[in-house]
Each structure stands twice: as C-alpha cells, then as structure tokens.
Design a binder for these strands. Structure first.
Lengths: 174, 174
DNA sequence: CTAAAATTTCAGAAAAGACTGAAATAACGG
DNA sequence: CCGTTATTTCAGTCTTTTCTGAAATTTTAG
C-alpha cells in the first residue's frame, strides 16, 4: 500500500507512542497502518508497506488478534488472510484498557492482597509497611470498582456523564 | 536497609510492572523501595539495598525528582541527600497521569491537529484517512476535556462521584 | 583555600528486546 | 495424494535500552 507523507508520519508517531507505553513498535505500527487503511490488507502488503520482515508481521498480527484489535477477513478467490483494525477509537481504548486490566491490574490486586494477608502474621516487617501496601490496595480497589461500574454503560450515557463532570461535582460537593 | 521477604517481592513486582508500562525497572524499584521505607534513605543505601550501582541510583532519583514523585530531605550533621517518596497513592497516580499527559498526550494532540489541518488540502491522501484521524482526534479531545474538568476536584468529591457512578448513569440515562 | 565527601557524568559493557530469514508446517486446489 | 501457496516458528543477529565503574564535578567543613 502506498503511504502518503501524512500517513507515513502518523504510523511513525504511533510506533513511537507504542514503545513508550510498553507496546512493541512494529505491533503499534501495524495497528496504525490497519487503522488508516481504507481496506483490509494481507500480511505481505503490511510487511512491504512498513519495510519489516514478513515473519515479524505474522507475530505482530497474532498479538493484535489476541488483543482483539484486529480481525481476519477473506475475499473470494484469494486464500490469503486479510486484516482489518477496529476503527472506533472508543472501542480501541476500551479493549486496551480491559486487556491491560486483566493482564496487569488484576494480578497486581491479587498480589497485593497476598502481601497484606501475609503481613498480618509477619512480625519482621514493620507495621508501617503493611499500612502502605494496604493503602495502595484500597486505592486500587476503589479505582477498579469504579471502572467495573462504568465499563459497560452505553457510550451515550458515558459521554453525558463526562460532559456533566463538573456540574455533578457542584451538586454533590455540598 | 534490610528487606523482609514481602518487601523484596513487592519491589520486584513493581519493577516488573514499571517495565511493562515503559518505566525503567530500576526507577520503578527505587520508587517502590522509597514508598515502603519508614524513613528517608540516602543514595548509597538505596544502591546497596537494591543491588544496583550508585550511579544508577543517581540517575533514577533524578528522574523521580523530575516527576515530583520523590523529594530530598536533610538531617543535621549529615550532608548527604536523603530521599522520601510521595506516600499518598492518589497523589502518586495524579502526578503520573499528569506527567504522561503533558509528555505524551498533549504532543499527540498537537500532532493529530496538524495532520487533520494538512489533510484539508492534501489531495493524495484518501478522504477516509482524514476522517479516521479526525475521529481519533475528537475522541482524544473529549477525553482530555473531561480529564481537565475533573482533575482538580477535591478527592472527596471525586470519591463520591466514583461511588455514585452507576446511579448517576440511571438518572441521566433516560 | 584545601581536602574529603557526596554526587553526577558518561563511555563502554551487559542485558533485554526486537527483527530477520531460512526452514518447517499448514492450508488449500486440483 | 501432490504441488503450490500461505503462514508460523525460532535460532541467531541486530538494535535499543539499561547499567556499571572510573573519572570529573560539586559541595561543604574546617
């Protein structure tokens, strides 16, 4: 696929952003490319467009499929796999947040709970340490409880709530 | 500083978490150590406790100071720098989010605006691409507007809003 | 000032992570 | 089946990032 200068810069930008957030640069670039592409692309075209090895695309696509940010499609008379990205930014963010929660936050919560419970009978660790960890755990629990409570609200409701943010604050504030 | 097994595991865990989110492992470990430590530590003690080079601590601390997640303190009769971490998890997250917004989101917003404006007179890029980028920009703008509107609310108000999340949704929902 | 202590800098080493290409495997069409 | 095309795997290489240690710099106490 031919990249115009803007598309090129866009893909480079998101590759860069990805690597700052712990996402493999190629994976981020593939996603950016598919996000822009007007139609599904097959792996060879992705590799050629981005100038990376075909095998690298294979691995990257696999990861994006696992994240459910990309889907496979097919065309009649062509047995290659074609790929399309989720194009709705709200959905993209939802999937990423949900994935990172599951892979990173949930295990962390579990870990912190173990720590706190172990520390109840651990006399060698200062009490202060236990309080710190418990505080952090409580904070994370508050956050995830909130997330769970809003994550499946319809987008419209979410948008309204976001727009009302400060007004709600004023009403509650008293 | 002597680390008990739980403290040790805690620090390793956050080092690991950090590196998954694009934060240098040593930096994350230093922060975790200071978050737990009952009193301020000096650089040598940090290096020794974590088993990393003194110079590495120097660089890491500098970064944490730049993030304002760590502060310097002093003791009478000791000219070394001692360091303490921000211990309030809410404040920790606030500082991190604010920092990442400033360093990454704001430049991205600026970049996307340039793209969209350039694409107005760019005939070689498909119109679809412009719409995709514009859609993403709008989404990010909605998100940051919301963030700006709530970021300086008092914690109590924020907590109330979070607890009420779904109830508000029901009222608004109609 | 001087000397000792504390801190920082930074070139090079080490480690981690990403990427390639060749070979293996899988998926079809006939 | 068999040959062709598509995809995946993975050992080895390359790149990037992180870390170290020695030297330079800064700070401070006397």
């Amino acid at each position: 696929m031919r990249l115009t200068p803007v598309m090129h810069r866009y893909i480079v930008h998101w590759g860069e952003m990805g690597s700052r957030w712990g996402i493999n640069r190629s994976v981020a670039q593939i996603h950016a490319l598919l996000y822009l592409a007007p139609n599904p692309l097959h792996a060879d075209e992705i590799a050629e467009t981005l100038g990376i090895a075909r095998s690298n695309v294979s691995v990257g696509i696999k990861e994006l499929l696992a994240w459910e940010l990309v889907q496979v499609t097919h065309t009649l008379g062509d047995r290659r796999d074609f790929f399309v990205a989720q194009r709705d930014p709200w959905e993209v963010i939802r999937v990423i947040v949900e994935g990172r929660k599951r892979r990173e936050i949930d295990p962390t919560l579990a870990f912190l709970r173990t720590c706190v419970s172990e520390l109840e009978t651990d006399s060698e660790t200062p009490a202060e340490v236990r309080e710190r960890i418990a505080g952090q755990l409580e904070f994370l629990e508050t956050l995830t409880r909130w997330y769970d409570s809003i994550k499946s609200l319809p987008r419209k409701t979410l948008l309204k709530m976001m727009r009302l943010g400060q007004k709600i604050a004023k009403v509650i504030g008293e």
